[in-house]
Structures are given as structure tokens and as C-alpha cells.
Simulated assay, not measured.
Amino acid sequence: MPSFDSHHQPDGRLLQSGVKFTVIPETLQSPFKDHFPAYYKGLVRAEPGGFVIHPKFVNNAEKIYNMKVRSDDVWIRTFPRSGTTWTSELTWLIMNDCNFEEAARVGQPIRSPNLDANYINHWDKFAAEGSFDTMDIITIDEIEKMPSPRVLKCHLPFDLLPPNLLDTAKVIYVARNPKDAIVSLFYFHKLVNLCTFTGDLETFVDYFLDNKVLWTPYFGTVLDAWGKRSHPNLLILFYEDMKKDIRAQIKRISTFLNKPVTPEQIEKLVDHVRFDKFSKNESVNYTKEIKAGVGKDDPNNTFVRKGQTGGWKNHFSPEVNRKIDEWIAKNLEGTGLKFVTELNDQ
């Protein structure tokens, strides 16, 4: 099979997995390239499914697709900014007998790596230009050598992951209402230099709904997981349920993983992920990476940002909100899936 190096764009050739990646033409042109200057090679779309990713991913798609899944793995899948870090921390601690000392000593990106973190841009180019220091990013080869049990996370759809994943390992899918996910992803693009966005939120929403933002379409992965919700190896969590009653969701995770936790451990877990502590926890909040230049050092826009449900009300105009409501209604029609977009107590 032909490979694609960092100097060439995918040209529509078929990968072993049966997925075809093609460049999205508009992402090589203005105004997109002005709004997203970090994506100087544009973005690519995978078919079937329409998943949008950086061209660098194409070189590694087969390696991820052919990963050896272990029966004691736990894979956490989300749309970005939907509770990935939060759920990964709880899951890793439950799987490792609530070893808080180890969790504090070793950063979450190392002990619970993200499969697609390497492939949102050309890290080597930015490091060579001095945009930031070389970071400890776990490669797929290194993930393959990690001791069991592994707690892995990603934002990839099922059709880009090992085909035996769901029948072999435990998978937790976390869904967050799309309105808050859009706002959080917008701020992520304002924070992280690898995917800088220079426009305003209304413009970002247009790109998002048109599936021209990294990791879109939003409903692609969410509805794919929702359709598999009866599989015994899949647990679907909702961000809003975690906000409403984190103890109940910790118990659900514990039961799903067959890893009992005591009432005392549950209280320690609740305290550990309390927002005011979690946002200051350098093991999970990417402070080191941001200071090294991966992101902008802005106290008003941090990796663990607000963690609220309903924050979208402070960001969307009535017109933009109507547009999003129509998009949500169209995609959820007949699915039985509903989202909570506001919480009184959180």
C-alpha cells in the first residue's frame, strides 16, 4: 500500500481498512486558511463517515487500525471537549486501585495516552521552528508496549479503530450536549497553537456545522456509539449526568469495569475531580505543555476551562442558537437520543 509522508497530501487512495482519505479543497483556500493558519496543509475527510482529521493522521491510520487490542484494555472515546480528561482520570484510578500517588507523579498524557494526539498537526515542524519545546507524546509503538491494564483514549470513530475493539475490550463513550461542546472546542482552538483559530465564535459555528473543523462531524461518532449502546462491552456516559451526580457515574464505571470501589474511595475520587482542584492539577491540566509553547498562557482560557453545562447561553446569539437547534433536531430525528443543555445545580 502506498504511504503518505508529511510532504504529500492524500489523493483519494484506499487504505487497507477500506477507508479513503481525500483533501477538503476549501481548507487549502481562503478564508479557511486565514482562519486556521496552523493547518497549512489543510484537512482531510475520511469516507465512509466523513470524519475530518489532519493529513498527518493518514500515515498512521493503518497502524492504529491494526493495533493489538487486549482483553483488559479500557478505551475511552469522546467527541473532543466532552469530558475526556475527566473520565480518563476516574477510569485510570478505578483500574489502578485508586493509586492517587502514582496519578500525581505521572501525567495523564503518559499513563492514559490519546491515540490521535500526535496527528492533529505536524508537531516536528512547530518544534523545529521553536514554537514550543519537544513534548513527551506517546507514539502508537510505545502504546503497544505499555503494561496492562491500559486506559487509552481517542476521538476517532469506530471505523478507524481496530475492528475487534468492541468485542475484545471495554469501551466507554462520553457524550456532551453539542452546544457546550462547540463553545469548548472554540476556546480550545483559541488556546492550542497547533490548531489556532483567528475568527469569532459565529464563524467557528459555521465551520463546525459544515463539518470543516477537526474531529467533526459531531453526530458521526456520537450516533455511531449510540447505535451500539446495547453491546455489553460499551458503556455510554453523559457529561451532564456526571455533573449532576458524579457518585452515581463513578459507581456505573466501577460496575462496568468489574473493579469495586469502597464508599471511602468514592469520596476520594469525588474530591480528586472536584473542579477547583482538577483545574489546578498539573497532572491533568497540561500546564507544563502550555508553558512550553503548545498553548497560549492565558489565565482566562485554560485546558480545564469552566466545566459547566449551559455556558453556551452566554455565547450564542438568538440567530446562531436557532441555527444550532435546527441542526440538532435534524440529526437526532428518529434516534431516541436527547441532550440536557442546562442544569440548575452543578
Results as ranks from 00 to 15, higher is better:
Leu257His: 09
Met95Lys: 15
Thr216Val: 00
His7Leu: 10
Asn121Glu: 13
Arg150Gln: 02
Asp180Thr: 00
Phe126Glu: 06
Asp298Ser: 04
Pro113Ile: 02
Leu332Ala: 03
Pro31Glu: 04
Gln108Ile: 14
Tyr39Trp: 13
Asp206Gly: 08
Gly107Ser: 14
Cys98Leu: 12
Thr198Lys: 15
Gly293Arg: 05
Asp72Asn: 14
Tyr187Pro: 02
Arg305Lys: 06
Pro260Asp: 01
Phe316Pro: 05
Gln29Ile: 00
Met67Ile: 07
Pro10Lys: 03
Ile253Asn: 04
Val304Tyr: 03
Asp11Lys: 13
Arg252Tyr: 08
Glu326Lys: 15
Leu166Tyr: 09
Glu202Asn: 11
Glu129Met: 14
Thr203His: 12
Pro147Ala: 04
Pro48Gln: 04
Tyr218Thr: 01
Asp241His: 14
Thr302His: 03
Ala128Arg: 11
Phe303Trp: 00
Asp72His: 08
Lys268Pro: 00
Met1Phe: 12
Thr85Gln: 10
Arg45Ile: 02
Gln108Ala: 11
Gly295His: 05
Ile53Leu: 09
Arg45Ser: 12
Glu264His: 13
Asp200His: 12
Tyr119Cys: 09
Asp271Arg: 14
Val222Gly: 06
Leu161Val: 04
Lys153Trp: 01
Thr85Ala: 07
Asp116Ser: 11
Ala128Glu: 12
Lys330Leu: 01
Leu235Lys: 12
Lys288Ala: 12
Asn321Phe: 02
Asn177Ile: 00
His272Pro: 04
Asp245Met: 06
Ile290Tyr: 05
Trp92Thr: 05
